[in-house]
Simulated scan of single mutants.
Amino acid sequence: MTTSHRPTQRVRSFVKDLVSVLPGAEKLTRGKATLRDLYYEAVARGAQRVIVVSVWKGNPGTLHVYEPLEPPSLELRLMARIMLEGVRLSRETPGAQRAYGAQSLGVYVPPAAGDELHRLADILARTLLASIAIDYGEALDRFDVVAVLDKGRSSIAEVEFRCSTGRVCGPLLRIAGVVDYDAGLRLHKAKGPLREASSGAGKGS
């Protein structure tokens, strides 16, 4: 996991926070590294994902999730973009604890949540190498960290990470939208329920 070029201190802190709750994640200082450089670094480390956090007005803006392709491709395939409306760092959360060396992540959606949040949970589970959790209590016993999805006030969802103790750990994510290039879907806030539309052309980086 790394940042775009010229990250702010808040973005660096966010990356450190998020790395602590993602299974087997490692933080990489970007420097002048290109995406091709990141590909070779990922292969050398045996990484299955590369996540690049961009900066928006000094804050974490978008998570670009890539999959390193097998040779001879020698490139990163963009799987998804997760747009953030805002974040709250663990140090800004009263009573939060620090996660260390998480090796498993569950994604849990409360039963009362609609189909939209379940679809979002599926996207997050696939891109972040996590597993869907059906029962919250069981999830705390089974996983080192559980990502709990709930409806946001202005965002499409809020993601809160909880350690096996049940205490909050890691950052809170307020998700403004998700583009899933594998499924060809764009999830974003509309008037009323979460709306799905074709992702359209152009994947960016």
Rank of each mutant, 00 (worst) to 15 (best):
57 K>S: 13
59 N>E: 15
59 N>A: 14
60 P>T: 08
61 G>W: 01
61 G>L: 08
62 T>V: 13
62 T>P: 02
63 L>I: 06
63 L>F: 15
64 H>P: 00
64 H>N: 09
64 H>Y: 15
64 H>R: 09
65 V>K: 03
66 Y>A: 05
66 Y>C: 05
67 E>G: 07
68 P>T: 10
69 L>V: 11
70 E>G: 07
71 P>Q: 05
71 P>F: 08
71 P>W: 04
74 L>W: 12
75 E>V: 11
76 L>I: 12
78 L>V: 12
80 A>D: 04
82 I>L: 14
82 I>F: 09
82 I>K: 01
83 M>T: 10
84 L>V: 09
84 L>W: 04
85 E>D: 14
86 G>P: 04
87 V>L: 03
90 S>Q: 06
91 R>W: 08
92 E>H: 09
93 T>M: 14
93 T>V: 15
94 P>A: 07
95 G>Q: 06
97 Q>I: 14
97 Q>N: 09
97 Q>G: 03
97 Q>Y: 11
98 R>M: 08
98 R>V: 11
99 A>C: 14
99 A>L: 00
102 A>V: 00
104 S>T: 13
104 S>V: 08
105 L>V: 08
106 G>H: 02
107 V>Q: 01
108 Y>C: 06
110 P>G: 07
111 P>K: 07
113 A>G: 11
114 G>S: 14
115 D>S: 14
115 D>N: 12
117 L>M: 07
117 L>F: 05
117 L>E: 04
119 R>F: 09
121 A>C: 09
122 D>C: 05
123 I>D: 01
123 I>T: 14
123 I>N: 04
124 L>P: 00
125 A>P: 04
126 R>K: 14
127 T>R: 01
129 L>S: 14
129 L>D: 13
129 L>G: 08
130 A>V: 04
130 A>T: 03
131 S>H: 15
131 S>D: 15
132 I>A: 04
134 I>N: 13
134 I>F: 14
135 D>E: 15
137 G>Q: 13
138 E>I: 05
139 A>H: 07
139 A>P: 05
140 L>I: 11
141 D>G: 13
142 R>P: 03
144 D>I: 03
144 D>E: 03
147 A>E: 00
147 A>H: 00
147 A>V: 01
149 L>C: 06
149 L>F: 10
150 D>M: 12
150 D>Q: 15
151 K>G: 11
152 G>C: 13
152 G>Q: 09
152 G>F: 07
154 S>V: 15
158 E>F: 07
158 E>A: 11
161 F>Q: 02
163 C>D: 11
164 S>I: 02
165 T>A: 10
166 G>P: 08
166 G>Y: 11
168 V>E: 05
168 V>N: 00
171 P>T: 04
172 L>P: 01
173 L>G: 00
175 I>Y: 01
176 A>Q: 10
177 G>D: 10
177 G>I: 04
178 V>M: 09
179 V>K: 10
179 V>E: 10
181 Y>E: 08
182 D>Q: 14
